Amino acid sequence: MDKKIENIGTLSGKVLLFGGVYSNLQALEALKTFAEANEISPENCICTGDIVGYCVQPEETVQLFKSWKAKSIAGNVEMQLVSGADNCGCAFEEGSRCDVLSEQWYEYAQSKISTSSLSFLKDLPEHIQFNYANKQITLVHGSFFNTSEFIFKSTNWDVKQANFEATNSDVIIAGHCGLPFYEENNNKIWINPGVIGMPANNGSPHVWFAILEDTKGQFSFKFHNLDYDFELASQLMQSNKLPESYAQTLKIGIWDNMEILPLTEQKQQGLKINL
């Protein structure tokens, strides 16, 4: 089947990149407020997928995203919801803690999403491409080859290089793994802006996003922290009987488990992220 790739042309001005909203309405509201305060237009605000996820307001989050008119590619969660699948499609090991907990939040999300929201999610492209500061940029969720592939900074560069070659890109913007990072090699740049729906396992409740800038034709990017009402987001999870451990993660910034993480990233748990 052909991939659904949307080319949005050449962008100018600041471009705000983020991922993994994860049904965290409070975080999305804060990010939208930041974008408006910094005069970043909705069409320059782009998500790497998984608008829906762990938190408690999937329907409200999708509707806010839709009304904001920001752009997004489809994450594995969107693809699974649209197809009516019975799991989130993260390819967790069967019986693992992630697998067990995902059954709870995914079933909850399925029960809350409206037909209108599913229609919106169905129309999301698998990838977005655009030109910016003389660079060809492609958004992927996991990878170009597999929406659910986890790619980290410690992942071998050859894995990343294959994505650049397949898309003929200078810059890849990726999501899915939940951790912000970048890596430069062979005049190519892989950027994961992080996610706004959950902290980055570094012991802080703040979440992450990134901004691209074009200064006289020179490409640059910077990572940012986002402060939002994580106490409310956590409280709402608890009152709706979603996984307690994820509700705590929103407040303490430490993941419930590290099953998906390579050893390098496991060793970084609780450490300050310097980008």
Rank of each mutant, 00 (worst) to 15 (best):
D2A: 12
D2R: 14
K3H: 15
K4S: 07
K4T: 13
I5E: 07
E6K: 15
N7Y: 13
G9S: 07
K14G: 03
V15P: 04
Y22R: 00
S23M: 06
L25F: 03
Q26G: 00
Q26V: 02
L28Y: 01
E29R: 12
T33E: 13
F34R: 00
A35F: 10
A35N: 12
E36P: 04
E39I: 09
S41R: 14
N44M: 11
N44S: 07
N44V: 03
G49V: 02
G49H: 08
G53Y: 03
V56K: 04
P58I: 08
E59T: 01
V62S: 00
Q63F: 12
F65K: 08
K71R: 14
S72D: 01
S72M: 04
L81Q: 09
L81G: 04
V82N: 05
S83R: 15
A85I: 03
N87E: 13
N87C: 06
G89D: 07
E93I: 15
E94S: 15
Q104E: 12
Q104M: 06
Y106W: 15
K112R: 15
K112M: 09
T115F: 15
S116A: 15
S117G: 06
F120R: 13
F120L: 06
E126A: 00
Q129S: 10
Y132V: 02
K135P: 04
L139Y: 15
V140F: 03
S143E: 04
S143H: 07
N146A: 06
T147D: 01
S148N: 11
E149Q: 14
E149P: 05
F150Y: 13
F150G: 01
I151D: 02
T155K: 09
W157G: 00
D158T: 12
V159G: 00
V159M: 00
K160E: 07
F164S: 00
E165C: 09
N168T: 05
N168G: 06
S169I: 11
D170T: 05
I172G: 06
A174C: 09
H176W: 05
C177F: 05
P180N: 02
E184G: 07
N185Y: 13
N187Y: 14
I189G: 11
I189Y: 14
I191M: 13
G194Y: 02
M198H: 03
P199L: 01
A200M: 05
N202C: 05
S204Y: 06
P205K: 14
V207K: 00
A210D: 02
D214R: 04
T215S: 13
F219H: 14
S220G: 12
F221T: 10
H224F: 12
H224R: 10
Y228I: 01
D229E: 05
F230P: 01
A233H: 03
S234H: 11
N240W: 10
N240E: 09
K241S: 11
K241Q: 14
L242W: 11
L242T: 12
L242Q: 10
E244K: 15
S245Q: 10
Q248V: 02
Q248R: 13
T249G: 03
K251Q: 14
W255T: 07
W255S: 00
D256N: 09
D256L: 02
N257S: 11
I260K: 02
I260G: 04
L261A: 08
E265L: 07
E265G: 08
Q266P: 07
K267Q: 15
K272G: 03
